Each structure stands twice: as structure tokens, then as C-alpha cells.
Amino acid sequence: MVDMQSKGIACRIKKCAYELLSIGGDLMDDAYSWDLKGRDIRLKSMFLFCDLSQLISNVPKDQKKALTEVGNKLFSSIEELDHAVKIRSIPLTQDRYNEAGVILQELMVLMP
């Protein structure tokens, strides 16, 4: 049962990562789109955080450290992305989005 649960968690993480990666490039300069992007990023990162925490607690001990380190980098990066969206800076948002994308890809490589 635990293996099936871990597979479900991994599937949700991959789906959420894909959705976060697809948010990226189409920023418009109106208040509604900025607010919508910010809410979407915060919602997806919350689900990602919950699932990643559960996955880390279920993986073998030798995988925990690497996943935890990448997870910490990812959530730090997402916080910076959220801040960039809140201040509505297109260059900063693109930079932080690209950084988060690289870390999400690192996470996908480490996933069991």
C-alpha cells in the first residue's frame, strides 16, 4: 500500500511541476493577470510542498538528504518567484521563473 501511495505522490509532484513550468512565459502587464499568476504559483507550491514532504518521509534513508536539499532550494526559489510576481517586475519574474524551472528539473531527476 505504501508503494502505491508513493507512486501517487510522485505522479502529483510531476503534474504540479509540469503545471508550474507551464505558467512561465506569458506575463501580461495588467493587475488581474499578475494576481492570477501569483495565486496559481502559491496554490501549486502548497500542493507541491505537502506531497514532497510526504514523499521524503516515505523514501529510503539514502535518498532523503538529496531530496530534502533540492526541496529546500525549490521552495526558496518559489518564494523569490512569488515576491517577484507581487512586485510585478517582469525581468525579475522571468529570472526567478527560470531558476525555479531548473530546480524543478533537478527534482524530477531525483524522484524515485
Rank of each mutant, 00 (worst) to 15 (best):
F47I: 11
F75N: 04
F49Q: 10
L67H: 07
I56G: 08
V70R: 04
D62F: 11
C50E: 15
D51K: 06
K65V: 05
V70G: 04
S53R: 13
V59P: 03
N58I: 08
E80T: 08
L48I: 05
I56Y: 06
L52A: 05
F49C: 09
H83R: 09
A84C: 03
L81V: 04
N58M: 15
K61M: 15
K64E: 10
V70N: 02
L55G: 01
E69M: 10
T68E: 02
T68S: 07
S57M: 12
L74W: 02
F49E: 08
T68K: 01
Q54M: 14
L67I: 08
V59F: 13
D82R: 00
L74P: 00
F49R: 12
L55K: 00
I78A: 01
G71M: 03
I56Q: 10
L81S: 05
K73A: 03
K64D: 09
F75I: 05
P60H: 15
K65S: 09
N58W: 10
S53G: 15
K73N: 08
L67G: 07
I78C: 00
Q63T: 12
I56E: 09
L81F: 03
L67E: 04
Q63A: 15
L74N: 05
P60A: 14
F49W: 14
D51H: 15
S53F: 13
L52Y: 01
S57K: 13
I56P: 05
L74H: 01
C50V: 11
H83M: 09
G71I: 02
K73E: 04
S77N: 02
K61Y: 14
P60L: 13
F47W: 13
A66L: 11
